[in-house]
Amino acid sequence: MTKRKNFYLALGLIVVQWAASGSAGAMGEYSRLAIPQIKYRGGDYKPRPQAVESLLIQTAKRTSVEVKREFLELSLSSKDLFRYPFLYLAGNAAFDPFSSEELKILRHYLSYGGFLLIDDASAEVHSEFDRSVREMISQLFPHNPLQKIPKDHSLFRSFYLIDEVAGRARVNPFLEGVSLKGRTALVYSTNDLGGAWARNKLGHWKYDLIGGDQRQRKLAIRLGINITMYALTLDYKKDMVHLPIILERLRRYHSQ
């Protein structure tokens, strides 16, 4: 009887919520999560054109975050850049170095609250894109180099509990990042995350995984959602109120 009551209650809540959100409509379009892709010179700035939309669809489906699914692309000099606190930079080949003005804008963007996810879609170790990215970051933060993100970082527990790093490929078993005043403002993946997320118009996976099974894709999607959640909630999951439960789950997770 109790189970049935809970079921009806849950069903009722879902219906009410659907009705409420459907009728209220979106409020403040810019408050919804949109992830513009950075346009740059040289190379291919959108090697996985469906990647961001696919990630946003999964984010909307799995979490409470409201998203804006349209594909957006911006250059660093765009006046709309600061409307979007989350940027995605992807590629699979070398790209032209950013101008000093573009570097200045990006440095400003990241220092004052912006977040940048860089994704190497080449699936190669020490790729041309990788060289361009590292060169760009060394100019962007000369005194704050890329560092491996430790496994106890909030990125790995912002929604899912994750202990493996993967994308379409497994080039490196880690993420790298740049932290500014305790906040990780830049995350760099060399595993082609976008390739694992992207679906075609029929909803099928667009790219095959390299040397992995569907668990690898599942991990890549979960990592994408965690990165999104981290950008939106920062170190929320490190608040003391969450720690005991998370640590207990991690203990069980690792003991399996």
């Binding site: 809540l13 409470s64 899912y160 509990l161």
Partner: peptide
């Protein structure tokens, strides 16, 4: 929310 499909068990969530 109740309507979200997390595609994971509770133990895999934070």
């Amino acid at each position: 929310t109740l309507s979200d499909d997390v595609a994971a068990t509770t133990g895999e969530l934070s």
